[in-house]
Computed example of a mutant assay.
Amino acid sequence: MDHNFYDDGYLTDILKSVKSIALVGASPNPSRPSHGVMGFLLSKGYHVIPVNPGQAGKMILGQKVYGHLGDIPERIDMIDVFRASEYLAEVVDEALALSPRPKVLWTQLGVREESSAVRAEQAGVQVVMDRCPAIEYPRLLGHHPVH
């Protein structure tokens, strides 16, 4: 897949179909982009699970933080990645080790690493790179909650 362009229908289908989102790189700091995006996703009715080893066991926006994807005791539909591009291979390793696997790997603005995206896609995971769901959601779905 060409990760420079995504069809609006592809993005809309993802945003409408996922319910649980693991947010990798979640921050308790309100000035961090991940904090704002997590709050936005929660406000739209998604179940958001923050992932951050340094914050494991604490709470961010009322949600329990897990240290790693593999520590989350429930099914994850989508992983939203707020980590630098060089960490994406590690996130994909963790994601592909999950059972069941998440349906979607979504990386935030500026997060791109083609070989990791290809590995995820070859394992049947849909990939969106270098996009922000808090930008795409209002653009594609307006202000209505999806659930």
Rank of each mutant, 00 (worst) to 15 (best):
residue 104 V to D: 09
residue 86 E to N: 08
residue 59 M to T: 07
residue 88 L to M: 03
residue 111 V to C: 10
residue 57 G to Y: 04
residue 87 Y to T: 07
residue 3 H to N: 09
residue 18 V to A: 08
residue 78 M to A: 04
residue 128 V to Q: 08
residue 10 Y to W: 04
residue 8 D to F: 10
residue 55 Q to C: 12
residue 49 I to E: 10
residue 136 E to L: 11
residue 105 L to Q: 12
residue 66 Y to G: 05
residue 4 N to F: 11
residue 95 A to T: 01
residue 142 G to K: 05
residue 67 G to C: 06
residue 50 P to V: 04
residue 140 L to K: 03
residue 91 V to C: 12
residue 79 I to Q: 13
residue 48 V to G: 15
residue 105 L to D: 07
residue 128 V to I: 09
residue 117 A to E: 04
residue 138 P to W: 11
residue 114 E to L: 12
residue 53 P to Q: 03
residue 133 P to Y: 12
residue 14 I to T: 15
residue 93 D to Y: 06
residue 97 A to Y: 08
residue 17 S to D: 15
residue 85 S to I: 07
residue 74 E to N: 12
residue 32 R to L: 15
residue 64 K to M: 09
residue 53 P to V: 11
residue 145 P to N: 02
residue 15 L to E: 14
residue 100 P to I: 09
residue 60 I to A: 04
residue 124 G to E: 01
residue 66 Y to K: 02
residue 13 D to Q: 11
residue 3 H to I: 15
residue 106 W to T: 03
residue 22 A to N: 03
residue 84 A to M: 15
residue 145 P to F: 01
residue 29 N to T: 15
residue 109 L to Q: 04
residue 104 V to G: 11
residue 134 A to H: 06
residue 36 G to F: 05
residue 70 G to N: 09
residue 18 V to K: 05
residue 17 S to F: 11
residue 19 K to N: 11
residue 56 A to F: 02
residue 133 P to S: 09
residue 65 V to E: 01
residue 51 V to C: 09
residue 5 F to D: 12
residue 12 T to V: 11
residue 111 V to G: 06
residue 118 V to D: 04
residue 127 V to S: 00
residue 145 P to S: 01
residue 124 G to Q: 01
residue 132 C to Y: 06
residue 20 S to F: 03
residue 26 A to K: 00
residue 102 P to F: 00
residue 31 S to E: 12
residue 123 A to E: 02
residue 42 L to Q: 14
residue 33 P to D: 01
residue 5 F to E: 14
residue 89 A to C: 11
residue 121 E to T: 11
residue 77 D to A: 01
residue 90 E to K: 14
residue 65 V to W: 01
residue 59 M to R: 10
residue 43 S to I: 08
residue 144 H to T: 12
residue 81 V to H: 01
residue 13 D to C: 09
residue 136 E to M: 14
residue 112 R to T: 09
residue 50 P to S: 03
residue 21 I to P: 13
residue 101 R to W: 00
residue 127 V to A: 01
residue 125 V to G: 08
residue 88 L to Q: 01
residue 47 H to W: 05
residue 18 V to D: 08
residue 137 Y to V: 13
residue 119 R to F: 00
residue 51 V to S: 06
residue 76 I to E: 00
residue 69 L to G: 00
residue 106 W to R: 02
residue 115 S to H: 15
residue 132 C to N: 09
residue 110 G to Q: 07
residue 35 H to V: 08
residue 45 G to F: 00
residue 54 G to A: 03
residue 120 A to M: 05
residue 92 V to Y: 05
residue 29 N to D: 10
residue 99 S to F: 14
residue 23 L to T: 13
residue 136 E to D: 10
residue 28 P to T: 13
residue 89 A to E: 12
residue 46 Y to D: 00
residue 62 G to E: 08
residue 129 M to N: 02
residue 100 P to C: 13
residue 6 Y to M: 06
